[in-house]
Design a protein around this nucleic acid. Sequence first.
DNA 1: AGTATTAAAGACTCTTTTATCCTAAATTAA
DNA 2: TTAATTTAGGATAAAAGAGTCTTTAATACT
Lengths: 159, 159
Amino acid sequence: MALLSKSCVYGIRAAILMAIKGNEEFISIKDIAKDLNLSAHFLTKILQQLTQEGLLLSHRGPKGGVKFSREPKLIKLIEIVAAIDGLELFEECALGLHGCGTATPCPLHEKWSEHKLVLRRLFETESLEKLADNVQEAGLRLRTLSQLDILEFNKNKRL
Amino acid sequence: MALLSKSCVYGIRAAILMAIKGNEEFISIKDIAKDLNLSAHFLTKILQQLTQEGLLLSHRGPKGGVKFSREPKLIKLIEIVAAIDGLELFEECALGLHGCGTATPCPLHEKWSEHKLVLRRLFETESLEKLADNVQEAGLRLRTLSQLDILEFNKNKRL
DNA sequence: AGTATTAAAGACTCTTTTATCCTAAATTAA
DNA sequence: TTAATTTAGGATAAAAGAGTCTTTAATACT
């Protein structure tokens, strides 16, 4: 099991890339998909969810694409997660017990509910702009690396 | 997305129940399944994985069942998780980027790798015996609650 | 020896997630 | 108005996860 679904991490990667490109004009989903090496159709579906949640504005036709409805500075990672995976991760019992809570806790309840808060705080704290800055300043990555990419990286120390 | 797969939480619940029952004799999987309100066949598959990993001993035939290969005191939660879900959760990049690491980090790498350690520690710290004690001392729960169960609980403050 | 019991193992089904493909609708620009 | 571009949306397919069912193998007890 991973922490986040694939759809969710694709959505996050796309959002960070969009934040890097600024939020002046609409950015075509096809271009984002090409940059991230993802299926454009699939990414379209994922970003549609962000549009429906009001996180993105979309525009059809030539010069169309998507852009954030607010400054990326103000958008926190948890908003992307909430729109795609939901907040279950930050709210549910680790043992999946429905009635788990202070009144009727599971044996992990106390430890896990403490931990959930920390995890949630992490996602609430990171803004897209900050993550975008990380990427640019430190030359961080958004794409998975193929063997070829790794060779390339070793030469240029950058992707 | 949940933190752990259903198989994994079923395995954990079963293991805690087994720890509560002590580790003297083989316990029949059917009985465990009945107690936890799970499908016996499905639980058999899950516990098979724990047997194959050497966490459990199994025995066929009358008076057969499963028991821990070591004292439940010595078995940590993370061993169950490792056997069923694997350690991916505690080792992988939050954005699912394969080459992510100190050399070629993703924008979340630093924060998440710090956090992964804390999460891992949580699962490494909790022993089955301790969780079993929690359940017994505080009257905690291992089953999901039906509406009927909740009424029952409100009467007796215990399940 | 025979029978009942129990885990192991495999076939199979159902659901969800992931992914692809095609068509429709909106929009721009010539 | 026509053509090109781009998101929206639905149909479909493939893969993984969740769950059921049947058969087989081992074992204990009579």
